[in-house]
Design a protein around this nucleic acid. Structure first.
Lengths: 337, 337
DNA sequence: GTGAAAGCGCTAACAC
DNA sequence: GTGTTAGCGCTTTCAC
């Protein structure tokens, strides 16, 4: 193993100088810097992470807690994770993967042992058992998602309340009078998952404001469940002409089921989705959607964490505004036949 | 922060005794152990990971390289990952998440810096650029998947060649004479991904042995692609009565497309899937399948890594045998009408 | 602008 | 069965 003293000897300087070249924490003459950098490359030197963590009490590792819950769409979660890892790397950090399963104890373990010096927690519930712990913790943390009481925490997410509103509003402006939100699987609501509840609340409030008849229905992520739901919806709400789908895996099955039931999209039924943009774009009929900006959320989460680590003050809430993109699945309501 | 000396003082012993209680590397009297353990609990002591790594030159962290390639089914990858993390925890290790993107440089970084003392690499290609590096590396590594030349490496996976064979054989024994394998998206084959190629090879070889007419077709993971493929297959192979589907996201769309085209399952068409068992079980029609044992593969990978870390010799290849479970999607071939 | 040296908290020889 | 102590490789004062 190549150590800092090896580099120092090779460059004809002291170990501390090598350390300072690496950290940039004090000014170094151009010539010295050049020699040191050359030696580092020549010897293939990499600082020992443990030694560094011990001496500086910073590990340059952040822990990411990933959900294992049922009912959440794994590919979308994975986008958050990839974005977190990529952004962390850009800030010279590595990412430790924790499963939800480990709970508070897992968080305590990696922070107390100084393995990680920051936490990113995904899939936060409205009443999340980890919240009091995170509030008391002396290490910085950022949540992806909002609990009921977000004060004193740092949370990032798409503004799902506004998202629900924007979707209902768009349908209203297209002239639709009877609309439905098809949301996450029932267990997601039962658990008290913020994004599901907030979308529903925003949707319902805006629908009421515009005087629309509206309803909210959970939906399991299978073609079968989609079929059953569509049947029921068409039976119970004959005037229905607009739906919002906030459920990635069910989106295409739902659209197919509506079409099989004789509803043309967008002529008879306008569909607005809440999902990542590329997914909406690649659907059989490109879907008008509010994008779930997974990459941006992951990036912001890490950036907020880095800022907190450096002692900067950051806002409690970072709510990314919804952006609706019009595609082929929406149209003004047809005149009554 | 609570240090080992704090615990030692509290328990009235030396720091090394505390260390030995923790590591179990020498025998400790019952009474001493009791006092030390009580002090650890009382003070909430957690060894500093960096200090430990520095002194012992073992970090108790392994790095997991996750694929970001298109065409692979993210939920299945996630199962591997969860299993790796869970098993690692059972061996007192944490898991660092690396993306494929970082390539060889990422592997070098985490090993050279002693951040990780072992590697688990997923989604290995037949000719994988990282192979020479892994072979030369002085740290233990385990691959999930098999490259073309596996000698001198430690690889774990389902035996996909045998899997292809078992599927073809089962269809043959049910009396089917014309069969097809519907596999991964084209790009997965183009990349030279072992599991796809091996399943195809095993399937084709066994079909030939049994004198079946057979074909192998890639399939993109969308309902649309599934529909097109089914149409074409029924047009070009009128006698087709058995298919093997090795493509998780396409499985249900394919079955629906076959049914829409008038093929009853299993009366007119037997379907065998290669996918995780619970997925096959929960399909609209429960599907006869060879399970992809993601949990077991992840577990074995970590166990092999732990064994290597302790200097034990382990086999180069760990090929898990395919296990076919009969469900509702297969039946003997109907007599010709 | 650079160097010397004191730790960071732990492990593992070496002693007894 | 237990204690003493010399490092592990780095960062960061303090000194010049």
């Amino acid at each position: 193993m190549v150590r800092i003293t090896d580099v120092a000897r090779c460059a004809g300087v002291s170990p501390s100088t090598v350390s300072y070249v690496l950290s940039g924490k004090r000014s170094i003459s151009a010539e010295t810097r050049r020699r040191v950098e050359a030696s580092i490359r020549e010897l293939g030197y990499r600082p020992h992470a443990g030694a560094r963590a011990l001496a500086s009490s910073r590990s340059n590792v952040l822990a990411l807690v990933m959900p294992l819950h049922s009912g959440i769409h794994v590919p979308v979660q994975m986008r958050f994770a990839v974005s977190v890892v990529t952004t962390a790397r850009a800030h010279d950090h590595d990412v430790l993967l924790l499963t939800q399963e480990e709970g508070e104890e897992g968080l305590r373990r990696v922070t107390d042992s100084a393995l990680a010096d920051g936490l990113v927690v995904m899939d936060v519930q409205m009443r999340d058992a980890r919240i009091p712990f995170l509030r008391a913790l002396d290490r910085p943390s950022v949540l992806i998602g909002f609990p009921a009481e977000a004060e004193g925490l740092t949370c990032v997410d798409l503004d799902f309340t506004a998202t629900g509103e924007v979707c209902a509003e768009r349908l209203a402006l297209l002239g639709h009078r009877s609309v439905a939100l098809i949301g996450s699987p029932p267990e997601v609501y039962a658990r008290g998952t913020g994004f599901a509840q907030r979308t529903a609340a925003g949707f319902t409030a805006a629908a009421r404001r515009y005087g629309l008849a509206s309803t909210v229905l959970p939906c399991a992520p299978s073609a079968e469940a989609a079929g059953t739901l569509v049947e029921r919806l068409l039976r119970e709400r004959p005037g229905l002409s607009g739906v919002v789908v906030h459920n990635e895996p069910a989106l295409e099955p739902l659209m197919e089921a509506f079409q099989r039931a004789g509803m043309r999209i967008p002529e008879d039924l306008s569909v607005v989705a809440v999902c990542p943009d590329d997914l909406a774009e690649r659907a059989a009929i490109p879907v008008t959607s509010v994008g779930v900006p997974a990459a941006e959320v992951g990036e912001r989460a890490v950036e907020l964490l880095m800022a907190k680590q450096q002692g900067q003050r950051v806002p409690d809430a970072t709510l990314l505004p919804p952006r609706l993109t019009e595609r082929a699945s929406t149209a003004p309501r047809a005149a009554a036949p």
